[in-house]
Design a binder for these strands. Structure first.
Lengths: 106, 106
DNA sequence: GCAAAGCACTTTGCGTTACAAAGTAATAAT
DNA sequence: ATTATTACTTTGTAACGCAAAGTGCTTTGC
């Protein structure tokens, strides 16, 4: 019988906040800091560090600009980020419940 | 348009090793330490602490017995663990864009 | 028969991470 | 002019993940 293999889950993605951020960014062209803060329901500080981590990994770009006179931080996922996210989803599938199997493993 | 909501992901489950362990235990009546070590590809010490954490959360029971003269640690998921895992999977769905699920490969 | 090696784990130590409180710098309001 | 608000970043710390080291028993070798 086949033994379940559990491929590694990219640690940069396997975090609740960063997973949520990428999940948003996958579906839109870009999203700003405050929008991401709202949907992830996290604090400024926490989000800031998570975004930096995603940027450092090359999964996301952070663009700083001004909306009127207020600074705006805009994020978009990169191609590398899209590929990493897709790979993460593929790997994650192997962690979802297997077909029913009642035998004892030893 | 509806804004994606990201429900909390049970932190006891949202860890690569513990997710793998529960994924195994969901499908079998019980599994012993060495089997879990093999499939999760982790070290003894690491697995030991993760199993304790799952036990403390009441998601799993750890039974100690002897096979001949060697100690065996046998794990099984509890009803509470099954419910928590099901809830985790439900929550996780909101993080996975449906588009990427339906993607046809190649 | 007694040290050495192996097995089955647990405990310890420590670098990394996640989080929010505090800090910074600007504009806006009173 | 002072205080508040916006938009973040930096810092401090508690919790976490990981593997090296430790524990206790068994088996093997000489």
């Amino acid at each position: 019988m086949t033994i379940n293999k559990f491929p590694p889950l990219d640690p940069v993605i396997h975090s609740q906040v960063r997973l949520a951020v990428l999940s948003v960014l996958i579906g839109v062209k870009e999203a700003d800091f405050n929008y991401l803060k709202k949907v992830t329901e996290t604090t400024d500080g926490n989000l800031s560090t998570h975004l930096s981590k995603l940027e450092e990994a090359g999964y996301m770009t952070i663009k700083k600009s001004f909306k009127g006179k207020k600074p705006v931080t805009t994020c978009s996922i990169t191609e590398k980020g899209k590929r990493a996210f897709a790979r993460y989803l593929e790997a994650l599938k192997d962690y979802l419940p297997p077909a029913s199997n009642q035998e004892t493993k030893e």
